[in-house]
Design a binder for these strands. Sequence first.
DNA 1: CTAATAGTGTCTATTAGACAGTATGTT
DNA 2: AACATACTGTCTAATAGACACTATTAG
Lengths: 274, 274
Amino acid sequence: MEKKYNSEEEFLKDYDSSRFEKLSMTADILIFSISDEATNNYRKLSKKHFSVLLVKRDDYPFKDKWCLPGGFVQIDEDLEDAPKRILAKETNIHNIYLEQLYTFGAVNRDPRMRIVSTSYMALIDKNRLNDKLHKNASWFNISITEDNNIVDICLENGIEEIKFKIKKTLKELTTDRYKFEVLENDKLAFDHPLVILAGIERLKNKIEYTDIVFNMMPEYFTLGELQQVYEIILGKKLLDPAFRRIIADKVEKTDKMKTGGGHRPSVLFKYKKH
Amino acid sequence: MEKKYNSEEEFLKDYDSSRFEKLSMTADILIFSISDEATNNYRKLSKKHFSVLLVKRDDYPFKDKWCLPGGFVQIDEDLEDAPKRILAKETNIHNIYLEQLYTFGAVNRDPRMRIVSTSYMALIDKNRLNDKLHKNASWFNISITEDNNIVDICLENGIEEIKFKIKKTLKELTTDRYKFEVLENDKLAFDHPLVILAGIERLKNKIEYTDIVFNMMPEYFTLGELQQVYEIILGKKLLDPAFRRIIADKVEKTDKMKTGGGHRPSVLFKYKKH
DNA sequence: CTAATAGTGTCTATTAGACAGTATGTT
DNA sequence: AACATACTGTCTAATAGACACTATTAG
C-alpha cells in the first residue's frame, strides 16, 4: 500500500526518482542544404544537389562510420536546446530553421546502453557557412530512388559513397503509415538511415505547402535556381509557367540581375513573407 | 586523455554509462474519437462531437487534475511499445491507429524530476469499446475557437468543463512554425494542453490528405455521418456535392440502408482502401 | 402534408498541365 | 550565328465552389 500524502510538496519531498530505471537521450540533426556542382560548359547552369551533413566517427561505437551530428541531451537542458547547441558547434550560423522530426527509441538502437534519440531537421544556406566546418564533417549529395516500396539512397561527397536500402511496408489498415526496415547499410552508424529517410520525406512533403525552401536559398536568387531546388527535392521536372504561377506570391522581384551566363540574364528575386 | 580501444567489444565492455546523468521518459496518448449526442427531435440527426479521453489523477503530482493516459517507458521496452501497452490497459481494442506526435522535453515540465515525454495520437471508434473504460477515465467533447492567434479550447464531459487558452506566436522567419504558450489552465496536468492542441492540429491537417478518419468510423456509415465528422474536425461546413466528389473513391456503397430517421433513408457505405 | 435529410445535375470559377513562342545574353 | 536559358501567352483539362432541384421517409 502506498503512503498517503496531504500536499504536492510533501509528496515531492518524498519522491523516489529511481523507481524506474532511467535512460539517456540524444539529439541528432539532419542538416540539409543545397550544393552547386561546377560545370565545364560556360553556358550551362551549375547543377544543384540536395545534400546532408555527416560526421565521420573518430571513436567507438561505430568507429570510422558516418553519422549525423548529434550529442547527449544534458539533464538541465530543454530538449530543443540540445540540437541548437550542437548546431552552433557544427556551424557558425545563427537563426537556423530547425524542426523536430521524430523520436527513435528501439531498445537496441545503441550498443552502449538504452538511448532514445530525438531527431531534428535543420535547413541552411551553405553559402553562409564560410568554410568553418568541423574537421570530420562533410557534405554528401543525396540521390534517392524508390521502386516497389524499396527506397535506394546514395550519398556521395566526391570521395566516398554511402549506399543503403530501406524497405517500406504498410503497417496499419487505414493509414498512410509505413514500417521502415533497413535492408543494406555498411557505412552509416546507428539507425541513421531511417532518420535520413524520415527527413527527406518530411521535406518533400512540406515544400509543397510551406515556405521552408527559402531557408536553403541565398538572399537573392533567380527563379530558375529556385525551380531547380524544387525539382531536386521533389525528384521531378516542373513546367516553367506552372512553377512561376505557384511561387509568384512568395517572391519579390528586385532590380538586380544575374548576368554572365552565356544566355539571357535573369532577374534576381527575394523571398517575400506572406 | 581518453583511453584507446582496439575493438567495439573492448570499448563497450569498458563503457561507463553514467557519464551523463540519466532521465526518465513517459509516453502520453491522445485518444480521439467521435461521440454522438442524443437529440429530442426524432427527425434530426444526432449531433456529433469530436472527443478526447482524459483520466482524473488519483495521486500526486497534480492530484485531482485531469491528464492524458500515459506512463513510464520501461528500460527494456521499445518506445513505441509503451503507448501500445497503455492503450491496451485503457481500452480493450486491438489494432488501434497510433502515430507519434511530438516529444516534449522542457526541463521543468514535471515537478518530480527530469521527464521527457513522447506523445502519441490514437484514433478509435468508441462503439468498439463496449464500456470497459478505466474507472477514472472520461470522454470530453472538444470545442475549439481561434482568434488572433489565441486558441481557446473547451473540453466538457457533461459534468465538468475544462477550459484553457494557448497563445501561438510566430517563431522563425521563413516558416509556418509557432511557439506555443499556455495562458490559462486550471484543470489539466503537466503540459498536456500543448499536447492536445498539437494533436488537434495534426488531425485537422491529415484528414485532408490521408484516410485516417476511417479509424474513427464504424464499419458501416452514411455519407451524411462521414461529412459531419469532417465538418467537426475541420470546423467548417462543407457543400454536399463537393464532399461526395472528394470521398467518392475512398468509400464503397453497400446494399444496406439506414432507415427510421423521419426522412429519406440513407445508403450505408464502407471504407474502401485505395 | 411537413420537416428533415439524401442525393444529383449543372453551371461557373479557379487552378493545373501543356506547348509554343519570343527575348537576350556570351562566345 | 548559335547555344542555352529567361520569360510569357494561351489553349485545354481538371478540380472546386455554388446553387437548385428531386427523392424519400416517419409522424
